[in-house]
Each structure stands twice: as structure tokens, then as C-alpha cells.
Design a protein around this nucleic acid. Structure first.
Lengths: 147, 147
DNA sequence: TTTGCTGCAAATAGTTTGCAGAGAC
DNA sequence: GTCTCTGCAAACTATTTGCAGCAAA
């Protein structure tokens, strides 16, 4: 998809503009982040890259994700159980719907959140900088395959 | 406050109904959960109880919170950085506003969330079971004391 | 008296870090 | 040629678990 190529180019350019070197490992990680629809995990990224780079280290994945986060080009979805999922396509806060069975993560369309932000700011006196909204449930495929 | 006493009684009764023993350590943990407005952390609970029970173990705090969670009487707010905060007053999902400076957590009043749940369910085909909504920002006290 | 609970210490697991060699520019 | 990056292994830290003694009911 054209969007994914754009994302790849955008992130690579931003890395270069910030003076970071473009190693093959780094580019492989960027490529996966840019082209994934499915909010991959660190392990997921690591496994995909090990096919082409058998010596790839998990530490390198962690370090590069940290770097790409620092330039604002990936959204980290950390969960309290310690799992992490990454969105390289929409690196800004947006709601997620998570299937608790198959762990699929979907981006719903919701536009009432901006109103809510203002409502919360007005009510609490906080200056709101960020937010996180997750819905947990059962997706239609998992709901159909009842055990 | 009467509400807090009610919460304490409710949780103790539910523990007894489930056949759990009422040890002094357990009751001390319940008391803190029931009376706290401020969403305490495990360390926070631990430190408060050590004043009266110097031999109290962190493991006991963890085990009892797990138990109280299992009977649905405390809401665990786990954060991706590994920190945890607990709400023994409203043990059901509700939005939170978190100050990123002083770590204060406030419960805002928001009623548009139920509509959102239905909207998401209709749009994605998920059966929504749970949700989590956090706003992050600077509270008015921290905003006033600019460094 | 029975059974579950506590305290201690060790184990666990995802992530981070130190270091020496490799490689982008 | 310089300076960052990588891979490996060790370190880190919040939480969990095994076990022996203790205590609620």
C-alpha cells in the first residue's frame, strides 16, 4: 500500500535528519513498523527480522523502538501485564479495541474523544496532554468459535 | 466518611462469604483500600501498614490485593511502566485523570462513555466487556508551580 | 484441630545496560 | 577515520512462588 511506503520513507527521513545511522537492522525494524496493520509486539518484530538477520538481538529491537519513539514516529501500547504492541502507522493517541482471546487490536473510528478531553480539562482543572482509551472484548471471529 | 465505612464492611463481608480468613494484616489492607481517596500503590499500602505491623511482608500485600481483586472489590490500575494504583471505592471501570508530575489521580465525571461502548461494538463487531480510559496531564497545583 | 495465611528468601521474566568489536558515513 | 550501533551476557526490578511455622475459625 502506498500509505505504508510513505510511512517508511517518512520515518527513515526523520531518522536521517536527526543524525541517526541507517543500519540494515534499523531499517528492517522501521519497515515492519511501517507496513504492519496488526500492531506487532517486540517478540513479533524480533521473530520476523531473525529470518533475514539470524544474529539479530532482542536488545537491538528494544533500543531501536526506543529511538523511533523518541522521534515520535511510533505509538507504544504498553499493557499492565508487561506486553507491548506498536503502531507505526498512527503514532498519535487513538482508541483501540482489543480481543482478549486472539489479542487482535483494531482501530475504531471515534470522534467524540476531543469533546471529552475538553470536558475533563474544564471539570478537573488539569491541562490534558495525552490520553489512552482501550476497549477489551471478544472479536467476531472468536465469538463465533465458542468452545 | 460513612461511604468508606460501608466499603470496609462490604469488602469484609464478601471475604467472609467466600470463606477467607480475616487476619489482622488482611483487614489492615482492606481498611486502607476502603478509606483511601488517593488511589494508593502497593508500596504506599505496604508503608502505611508497616507502621502497625513492622513484620508485614510485601508478598502479603500482593497476595491480598490479588484476593480482593478476585472477589471484584478493588480496581487495579496497572501502568505500562510497571506501577500500580488501586481504587477500593469504585471497583468498576471508570475514567481517570493522572498528573504526570505529582502522580495524583482524580476521577472525573463523564457519562458519554456508555454511548461510546455501543458505538465501538456496532462498528467493530466486538462484544465489549471492559474498558480503560486515562487522561494524562498537569494538575492545577503542579501547573501553578512552574519551575 | 484443620486449613489457610504469613514472612522470608529465592525464582521469574521482560527490559535495560556495559562492553568490545563491527560498520555507517 | 570517527563515532554510533550491534550482539552478547549480565544486571535490574516488580511481582510471584515454595516452604515452614503460625493463627483464624
Amino acid at each position: 500500500m502506498a500509505d505504508h511506503n510513505n510511512r517508511y520513507e517518512t520515518i527513515v527521513r526523520k531518522l536521517r535528519d536527526h543524525g541517526h545511522k541507517l543500519t540494515p537492522q534499523r531499517l528492517a525494524i522501521v519497515k515492519i513498523l511501517a507496513k504492519s496493520e496488526g500492531h506487532p509486539s517486540v517478540e513479533n518484530i524480533y521473530d520476523q527480522i531473525k529470518i533475514d538477520f539470524p544474529t539479530m538481538s532482542l536488545a537491538t529491537v528494544y533500543r531501536n523502538i526506543l529511538l523511533i519513539k523518541s522521534i515520535g514516529e511510533v505509538l507504544e501500547l504498553g499493557f499492565p501485564d508487561g506486553s507491548n504492541r506498536y503502531d507505526g502507522n498512527r503514532p498519535y493517541p487513538h482508541p483501540h479495541v482489543i480481543c482478549i482471546k486472539c489479542k487482535k487490536i483494531v482501530d475504531p473510528e471515534l470522534d467524540s474523544l476531543d469533546d471529552m478531553r475538553e470536558e475533563v480539562a474544564a471539570e478537573t482543572g488539569f491541562k490534558i496532554l495525552n490520553h489512552r482509551l482501550d476497549f477489551f472484548g471478544i472479536c467476531s471471529s472468536c465469538g463465533a468459535n465458542k468452545g
